[in-house]
Design a protein around this nucleic acid. Structure first.
Lengths: 251, 251
DNA sequence: GGATTGCGATGAACAGCGTTCACCATACAC
DNA sequence: GTGTATGGTGAACGCTGTTCATCGCAATCC
């Protein structure tokens, strides 16, 4: 950027051999959008910022992307890349679902605020349908009755997206506080957030909040990873309780 | 509005007894924001629209509300009004949780897109803390071990908010399509959305999507109310499975 | 009764947003 | 060497959230 020289005359020939600029493509735009959102977050992600990231006029984007909505959708769909699906295994469906949910959350965390985008994305795209299909297969292999297999995938993804969404809200709150420079040190990490909340809960008036005071530590000693795993575990156990009612045909 | 007469001279005395205009208050602003969001949805809710609804300049709002963020937060907090909490009942905790979640979703549906606001609202406000406390009480009364009671409230509210959020996304998609006038009749109600999706799923290539083709009807015959209830039921059964491991002390 | 003070609404302004469109430069075809 | 087409440019439009100097009006004080 800053160390560019005035055009060197003898470079003219070189420049004409290949295109002077890397051509703008959907992929490059999506990539730029990722780096912008990682830097400034969902609320401040704008077409102009993406264009600036590419050293390009805003209007140039609209030749490759119909608008901001489509760009967000494309960012969402990119998430499904290289997301390998489990092959149904009757003996192992619970672990398969656990793994699936974990990698889902990981992918949502790969870029800042992706959960906010995922939550408003269309859930029946060509990229997402194979996931739905495969989850159905896994649940049926596990012996879940049909009417539950259909709802189970929804539940997992709703919880996964909702959980990650809430995480991203906390993250944004923290980063905003940092950027404003108001409280540079407090609440810098999840550990500190938990610590702050635990202290706050413990100091609530015990007559009105006896349970929160008493359980402050046990509620907040868990990391987000553990809380997420526990949530998935609860859903799986709930589902499994139905599988027991309708044992799968042994054949 | 339109049937106002020019100022009647003999009303002057009357008018001076009370203020000519209803004074602007936080409450009136919040109320106006609700009617605006119900009409135009979250994305297009703006301070200017709220001000217009009140026949007032935009800048007047900022005397009562620090900004849009605070207004959204106030709209969120208003949701907790008249939301009565269950008294812990060891024999009845599952039904109590069911009811709590149902009224929660109802309140989220009272105004368009409220779930979007709730999801980004601060979950430990003075209004929300009693809910957390009371849910803890109910879960503990039900015999859940402490480390689960703390996570259970989170799970219920994450699922509740996430589910309602997804509903609001669908609703917005539908209303946008209507406003654009593109497809005036198709997808006018949830029933039609389900029907459209079911037809689509059934016509997927059966070699790649055997389960979706086969389960299209059973997946989509359920109303949203039923899907939500089923989700809550699954979570409750998952939680209850732990309660069985740690039976509550009988005293 | 008349002047003053204070409060609250005003409207213009600023910076930024998504999106559109007439323009133009460059790269290739003939 | 001229013509054309593709794709980036920059200005513009109508929005947005927020701020600030201004002003009208009501109550208060002298």
């Amino acid at each position: 950027m800053s160390d560019e020289l005035p055009a060197l005359p003898w470079d003219r020939a070189r420049r004409r051999t290949g295109p002077a600029r890397i051509p703008l493509t959907r992929d490059r735009i999506i990539e730029a959008a990722y780096t912008v959102i990682d830097r400034v977050g969902y609320e401040k992600l704008s077409m102009r910022q993406v264009a600036a990231e590419l050293n390009v006029a805003v209007s140039a984007l609209y030749a490759h992307v119909s608008g901001k909505d489509e760009l967000l959708e494309l960012m969402y769909l990119r998430m499904f890349r290289d997301w390998e699906l489990p092959a149904p295994d009757p003996e192992n469906w619970q672990e398969q679902i656990r793994q699936y949910a974990r990698t889902g959350r990981t992918k949502l965390h790969e870029h800042r605020d992706m959960a906010r985008i995922a939550m408003t994305g269309f859930p029946f795209s060509a990229e997402a349908l194979p996931h739905l299909e495969q989850l159905l297969a896994v649940f049926r292999a596990g012996g879940l009755p049909d009417h539950l297999a259909g709802a189970a995938g929804d539940m997992i993804s709703t919880f996964m997206n909702g959980f990650a969404f809430e995480e991203s809200v906390w993250d944004d709150r923290r980063q905003e506080a940092e950027e404003d420079g108001e409280r540079p040190a407090v609440e810098r990490s999840w550990a500190e957030i938990r610590q702050t909340l635990e202290r706050y809960f413990r100091e609530l008036p015990p007559d009105r909040f006896p349970n929160m005071v008493e359980l402050a530590d046990v509620m907040l000693q868990r990391t987000n990873d553990e809380r997420f795993d526990l949530g998935i575990e609860i859903i799986i156990r709930g589902l499994a309780s139905y599988a027991a009612d309708h044992p799968r045909p042994s054949g």
